[in-house]
Design a protein around this nucleic acid. Sequence first.
RNA 1: GGGAGUAUAGCUCAGCUGGUUCAGAGCAUCUGCCUUACAAGCAGAGGGUCCAUGGUUCGAAUCCGUGUACUCCCACCA
Length: 879
Amino acid sequence: MDVPAKYNPAEVEDKWYQYWLKNRFFHSEPNDRPSYCIVIPPPNVTGVLHMGHMLNNTIQDVLVRRARMQGYNACWVPGTDHASIATEAKVVERLRAQGIEKKSISRDEFLKYAWEWKEEHGGIILKQLEKLGASCDWDRATFTMDPKYSESVIRVFVDLYKKDLIYRGVRMVNWDPKAKTAISDEEVIYKEVQSKLYYLRYMIEGEDSYVVIATTRPETILGDTAVCVNPSDPRYQHLKGKRVLVPLINRPVPVIMDDYVDMEFGTGVLKITPAHDVNDYVLGDKYNLPTIDIFNDDGTLNEDAQLYVGMDRFAVRKQIEHDLQNAGLLDKVEDYINKVGFSERTDVAIEPKLSMQWFIKMKELSEPALEAVMEDDVLLFPPKFKNTYRHWMENIKDWCISRQLWWGHRIPAWYMLDGEFVVAENEHDALHLAREKSGLSDLQLSDLRQDEDCLDTWFSSWLWPISVFDPELPGSEEAEPNDDFSYYYPTTDLVTAPEILFFWVARMIIAGYEWAGGYPFRNVYLTGIVRDKQGRKMSKSLGNSPDPIKLMEQYSADGVRMGMLLSSPAGNDILFDESLCEQGRNFNNKIWNAFRLVKSWTVDKEKEQPLYAEQAVEWFNTKLNKTIEELNDDFEKYRLSEALMRVYKLFWDEFSSWYLELVKPPYGEAVDSKTYLATLILFDELLRLLHPFMPFITEEIWHYLVERKENESIMVSRMPRAEEYDEAVLTNGERMKELITGIRNIRKERNIPQKDTLELFINGEHPAEIDSMVAKLANLEKITPSEEKPANASSFLIGTIEYHIPLGDMLNVEEELKKLSEELKYLQGFLVSVRKKLSNEKFLSGAPEHVVAVERQKQADAESKIKTLEERIAELGNL
RNA sequence: GGGAGUAUAGCUCAGCUGGUUCAGAGCAUCUGCCUUACAAGCAGAGGGUCCAUGGUUCGAAUCCGUGUACUCCCACCA
């Protein structure tokens, strides 16, 4: 087989992905081997791959490929999330572009369009994952609105309702006026905004005086039903029992007294708008105030506002400022920075709004999940998230799960004509229950009306690790869990972003204990957030996020994978820099060229293996074993970037720069077969170690390396295991490198070409085993252990051993003296500090014995080196 | 307002139970090299007040206190 001079990733990567698919290497089914399982954090079905996905899925692929090669029955379950709000928003937008308004069509018609959209766009992100090399078991791909999956969602709702953990009620919720739905507290993002504080005059009823009230939202005065002062505020005692007039509309509202009011803030008077502020709502409740909701669902003002009806809330704010000014009711306006909640999905300002919603009581439900993490049944990486998790779980609030949307799982509640409702898994059961409840045995389905709302997307995602295997909710019923569930659950690792620790991770753990009999995964690896070089979060609006597909075209998928991994210590944010992908591409190139070198050798079967080659093989094999051991440790701690860096250095520095240079046959000569075979084996092992990180190039080369059968693949080969190794071999190897470096430096200083042979005289206890390797790399004619020190030689010390290279006339005595004296000076200073330490009584009595011994050894070595150097300097001086 | 985290080379980060892995790695930079796998390369080199300041200790990048700067999470005073 001819090896192309250039590596062509685009072609190669596609080829092998198809090969893997064809041979069903990604597929897993329960068997008698131990399982290793990851469920993907399902991306939004309408989503497009971004850098966060890249990071996340690269990590998952590395873990699952490694596990597979370690002999686990590895399964990575892919899928997509229906993402209620985001998808519905896109469908609405598309319809609008076609001139169709959502409210002009029926629910069924809308859903038809939505499913069309899903069919068109739903596959995109999964196709993109293929480019990355994701070894997902595509046969198991699940969508959170698959019929089976939906059944499990509804089943859970009914179960919770039966357990009295779901209730319906009017509460203040976060209203998204763009998506026109309630959202949960977790979906609100608070941002600091530059706003204004308006000081408004409220006339006191029947008097010619007024009080001034500061507010950031003057448009909400139309919904005011009281003003409030602190009872101990001396400035406002005269207001007790009086009423004030809401500006512009002159509605009289009472003055109430409550110490909730902060006397320091603004003017110390607070306007109360129970329908549009959470705190006001609480006060309104306490004092039995009426609530006036002045907003429509889309954030425009309604009839109850009396003024500005139909105008948008922000337009009203401008207008009312103007009108108040004209009416002489605006005292002043100040600049003010406050925090405003924005919708995570639509990025519009949240409107607190009273409405009828469904909630889950979370307190009791969450207790086992809190314990699971506290007791380390579920491990978080990095562990600092344990604290955050605990804090949230201990202060958990009820979860608003209803959304005023059509795209999603419809709430399985049916209302009767009298407003009473029943909750059931289907219409049939609902009718049965309704007849029972109402006592009307002739009640018909047409007498029932199903709740219009959908469930929060996360209400389905929290079942993900359970329902992808068994939609029957194995833990909650008598029913036997199916084979998939019994085998794969609990899964092994979960890899996700810390942003969704509460949205998703915590709730999955809760669901696991409630419906699957235990935790859903053993380890949670929380990745960082991908930021750009300036530390800004990558976002569409900033345009600072590279397109992963383009990156892969430019640097290869393997290259981009490497770029992602090199910058990804768990939990820390990632400052993504394209140059890391470049490093990945360069590494591809390095691997390819190293391979080309080996493949270019001609093999001479008659040739004896030179000693240096035999030793090189032994040395690198030892190095390999030690590295494997270290890699195991890295993976246990999920230190993936360190693991990759370790293999990178092993391949580039140890293998290419040292090993290959050592065993490379001299120009024009053939390699002996023993060395050649050994090199192929070592190369093979390196490829396997590299495979989880760089699956494509390793597969390509693996097939060139030796002839493979039709259905063989490196991805199902065995990961090399650490064998016992001899530390002494490694120590000698390091000595060999130091010696070579010393000799190279002398060559360089004196401009001696590599082809000129040199001689080496050694004074001291030098390990002669390495001589053969040293001679090969340094082009030495002979190596002579010698008490005698050759004249006209340049010399250097390694440890306490002195090495001399005779240079004859080429020796520059002056420079040599300078070099040696500098080293001497350093050693003398060093010796002083060591002696000082050793003459300190407290050190001798306080420090452990081995530390003292080490210091003594340092002292002896330094003394010996100094003696050697002094002698050498004297000799040179005599020349 | 409450909590957590981070601060080490130009950049990104290691540095575990205080002591030979103690000041490290990769990248970048600089200096030589188109040397018969690779210039996307090879061989070398330089580069640090370990944020500041007190303390504990024979000994501190490491432990403790204080301060400063940044980041994140939670709460939400109009």
